[in-house]
């Protein structure tokens, strides 16, 4: 499968009084057509900024200062704002953590949806309504006519997220970026939304980037996983490999910090905290907190390198991660 989206050396900085904050500092990522890529990381790792950069929705004081974002071969960073508009909604859709916050509170769902269909598909009023109903049915809303007449505050969190998904898919995009789509939802509703995303991917041949801090959500549904730390991707591999044979100490630490990882003994917390992105640590960015750090780690910046054809890791000692962490 060819890559639908390919990000190379992306740098997004936020200007501040003490110099630029390098929120994304050389981010590399690729997702193949039809795949679900899980983009995981803790708060401050730059996952959401990655999504906004791809959509070119970064606002001042933020600024994309370098790199390439190739969508099906087109470098999005070379496009004009007008050219970009043809991509947003029509080739790439996005959904967010707090769906109700992204719906205009004084507009009925039907009005919002009709508007989207009329701009994207250029259809008339009646046709737009038909398509809205069909799309709402498709995202699993049982009474679409009632939903069309509802205001956002009358929807539950799960229903609102389904409406957001319907809106994002109205322009028939090929890529859906979902930024923490289930974080604000209850666990039973989360399970429904995850299932929905998997079904839509299969039925519409959609490519999905699922941004989350929840490793279990990734384990449940993703084909590929990219782990982010301090503005960079530190590991990129098929999901199975990341969870069973991780080749980066940060990923291993994250997996072991989960309460489900051990039952009775203490959890393996990661010491220290995320680095200051104005002055990131020398060498490897995870080195000050790493259980494997050696002299080379502070001296030399590790590159994101291939260990196998489909397994990339940004660690000098990637080959040894398995043995030294006790991971089988």
């Amino acid at each position: 499968m060819p890559d639908l989206l390919r990000i190379e050396g992306l740098k997004t900085y936020f200007e501040g009084p003490g110099g630029p904050v390098r929120v994304l500092d050389g981010l590399d990522l690729a997702v193949a057509q039809g795949q679900i890529l899980g983009l995981v990381g803790e708060s401050g790792s730059g996952k959401s900024v990655t999504a906004l950069s791809v959509m070119r929705l970064i606002r001042p004081p933020g600024r994309i200062v370098g790199g390439r974002i190739l969508f099906d071969g087109t470098d999005l960073l070379q496009l004009s704002e007008v050219g970009m508009r043809a991509f947003r909604g029509r080739r790439m859709g996005m959904i967010f953590q707090d769906p109700r916050g992204y719906l205009n509170p004084v507009m009925r769902v039907g009005m919002v949806m009709a508007e989207v269909f009329r701009t994207h598909a250029g259809v008339g009023r009646r046709e737009a309504k038909e398509r809205s109903l069909e799309m709402l049915r498709r995202v699993g809303l049982p009474a679409p006519e009632r939903v069309l007449r509802a205001y956002p505050h009358e929807l539950s969190g799960g229903m609102a997220q389904r409406v957001m998904i319907a809106l994002a898919l109205a322009g028939e995009p090929r890529l859906l970026i979902a930024d923490e789509p289930t974080t604000a939802l209850d666990v039973t509703v989360q399970a429904q939304i995850i299932r929905l995303l998997a079904d839509l991917r299969r039925d519409l041949d959609l490519t999905v980037i699922l941004i989350t801090h929840n490793l279990s959500v990734v384990a449940e549904v993703c084909d590929e996983v990219a782990v982010m730390y301090a503005g960079q991707v530190v590991e990129l591999a098929p999901a199975y490999q990341v969870f069973e044979r991780s080749r980066h100490p940060y990923t291993v630490s994250l997996l072991r910090a989960r309460p489900s990882a051990v039952r009775s003994r203490d959890l393996a917390a990661i010491p220290g905290h995320i680095p200051n992105l104005r002055r990131p640590p020398l060498g490897c960015r995870f080195q000050p907190r790493c259980f494997m750090a050696g002299p080379r780690c502070a001296a030399e910046v590790p590159a994101l390198r291939h260990l196998e054809a489909d397994h990339l890791s940004r660690c000098h000692y990637a080959e040894e991660v398995g043995e030294r962490s006790g991971v089988a």
């Binding site: 799960g158 399970a191 279990s216 384990a219 449940e220 069973e244």
Partner: peptide, 18 residues
């Protein structure tokens, strides 16, 4: 959700909302 992709299993999506 499962702890690892290895543990994925076919199961019913829970019905309804709280």
């Amino acid at each position: 959700p499962v702890d690892s992709p290895r543990m994925r299993r076919q199961r019913e999506s829970p019905a309804g909302e709280p």
